[in-house]
Design a protein around this nucleic acid. Structure first.
Length: 289
DNA sequence: CAATATACCTGGATGC
DNA sequence: TGCATCCAGGTATATT
């Protein structure tokens, strides 16, 4: 499900429901997600404390508590958060429920269990910050997402631009859908080596990436199969997609059929006309038989 | 270090 | 209907 826009839509949707609410009780499915869910820390650091705000870093949500502890959630591929009356029956694949002091519950549902739940005690949040700085990339809406920085970051990398964008150690929050869309708008072939982008191309890419992410947030995210916001509403950005999921359909710009390939194991959609693999092209290595 | 493959899981779509 | 196969928005880890 979630790339940066879906996580951000979730964050904004939850905020009014959970601000200043106290967590009264915690329920766990007992199943392990990406990592085991830290039952003890949830009890000691989160239960009986109030939520002061929710921040987002990369695709993580950080629930900050009055005792400075942080509940860190990652939605993985299929994670969903919702606010429901406490008497609502638990759904299949619910894994965490936080009972709030207004008789509502925050529920985390994740069928594939690629999501994660972690707790950082208040005296360790500095370590969390350092961890993010070491492992997570540049925020697309931050000051560091500029053409000098990206041009420099890419200068020794032969990696294709799409894989570059999707590498979360380099850039945060851009997943498969938005990488495809950004490259289409910028007119770049997904396999163009990242180091070959000019500063001007980086500048265009940055603008297109931000524009795509912003529009997607405004539209409530992209609902390809089952993304729902925190009140159960679908996103509508799929109506504005140019190339993602549109194999064989006409390019919205030149009507050439969109092609689908696989790059780094991920479905890649592009227009062969508008995103030419020309000039300094990257030649696919052929496997000998 | 870079690129690719694989693993983690479930469910929906598709084809026989 | 059943069953096998493939595919999916993410990311850490192993392998080449």
């Amino acid at each position: 499900m979630p790339e940066l826009p879906e996580v951000e839509v979730t964050r904004r949707g939850l905020l009014p429901h959970i601000l200043k609410k106290k967590v009264q009780q915690i329920w766990l499915s007992g199943k392990k997600l990406r990592q085991p869910v830290p039952r003890k820390l949830l009890q000691t650091e989160i239960c009986d404390h109030k939520i002061t705000t929710i921040d987002r870093r990369a695709k993580y949500l950080l629930f900050r508590m009055t005792n400075n502890a942080v509940l860190l959630l990652h939605l993985g591929m299929t994670g969903k958060l919702s606010i429901l009356p406490k008497e609502t029956a638990k759904a299949k694949h619910d894994h965490l429920a936080l009972r709030l002091d207004n008789d509502m519950e925050l529920r985390f549902n994740d069928s594939r269990r690629f999501g994660s739940v972690a707790v950082w005690p208040g005296d360790k949040t500095q370590e969390l910050e350092e961890l993010f700085n070491r492992h997570e990339g540049i925020e697309p809406f931050g000051d560091e997402f500029n053409e000098e920085r990206l041009h420099n970051l890419a200068k020794n990398r032969s990696i294709g631009i799409k894989a570059f964008l999707m590498n979360s150690r380099l850039i945060s929050g851009v997943g498969n859908i938005y990488a495809n869309e950004t490259l289409f708008l910028t007119g770049l072939h997904p396999e163009m080596p990242a180091r070959e982008l000019s500063k001007k191309q980086w500048k265009n890419l940055i603008a297109n990436c931000r524009q795509t992410l912003s529009l997607a947030i405004e539209a409530g995210g992209t609902t390809i199969s089952d993304f729902l916001g925190s009140s159960g509403q679908p996103g509508y950005f799929q109506l504005q997609l140019h190339v993602y999921g549109k194999e064989k359909e006409a390019c919205p710009r030149c009507k050439t059929p969109i092609t689908k390939t696989v790059i780094a194991g991920r479905a890649t959609f592009s227009c062969p006309q508008c995103q030419p693999n020309s000039g300094t092209k990257r030649v696919a290595t052929k496997r000998h038989t």
